[in-house]
């Protein structure tokens, strides 16, 4: 039966995290237990099995990545072009709109001689008498 405490020490020793005292304890336990020594060999083998596993992508991986990157680039260029043309079109529309508004304001000023609220709304000033007569009007 393996001493659980020593087994935990053994696992920790695989990750280089034993203090000097713990290392001494483990070395002593290893000397006295063939089972623990066997476990150590097995754990080392497990480590080797994992570290020796080599993975690779299927053939043409680099080309597929570069193709995807190029598509990404194209997409980026299209979106940048769209944003640029949209911004420049918006600027033109905005400038034309401001010019039209300025012309309208000038023509209103010329025709009415002032730029008060009534000029803009097109409503003639209403006198108090006129308002009362409208309110009192009965069919």
């Amino acid at each position: 039966m393996i001493n659980q405490e020593m087994y935990d020490l053994l696992i920790r020793s695989m990750n280089d995290q034993l203090t000097e005292e713990e290392d001494k304890q483990l070395q002593q336990a290893l000397k006295g237990s063939s089972e623990l020594r066997e476990e150590k060999i097995k754990l080392n083998k497990v480590g080797k099995l994992i570290s020796s596993r080599n993975y690779s992508f299927s053939d043409g991986f680099r080309n597929r990545v570069m193709q995807a990157v190029n598509e990404e680039k194209k997409g980026k260029v299209i979106s940048i072009d769209f944003t640029r043309s949209f911004t420049s079109m918006f600027n033109r529309i905005a400038v034309a709109g401001v010019a039209v508004i300025a012309l309208l304001v000038i023509s209103l000023y010329i025709s009415h001689g002032s730029l008060n609220v009534n000029t803009f709304t097109g409503v003639e000033p209403v006198s108090q008498d006129n308002l009362i007569s409208v309110l009192l009007y009965e069919k």
Binding site: R53, Y55, S56, F57, F61, R62, V65, V69
Partner: peptide, 22 residues
């Protein structure tokens, strides 16, 4: 420079394969 990025892909392809396939 696409070639430069391609070289980086080649250099780290196996490491990424180990990570994602692991």
């Amino acid at each position: 420079e696409d070639g430069a990025f391609g070289e980086l892909v080649s250099r780290y392809e196996q490491q990424v394969a180990g990570t994602v396939k692991g």
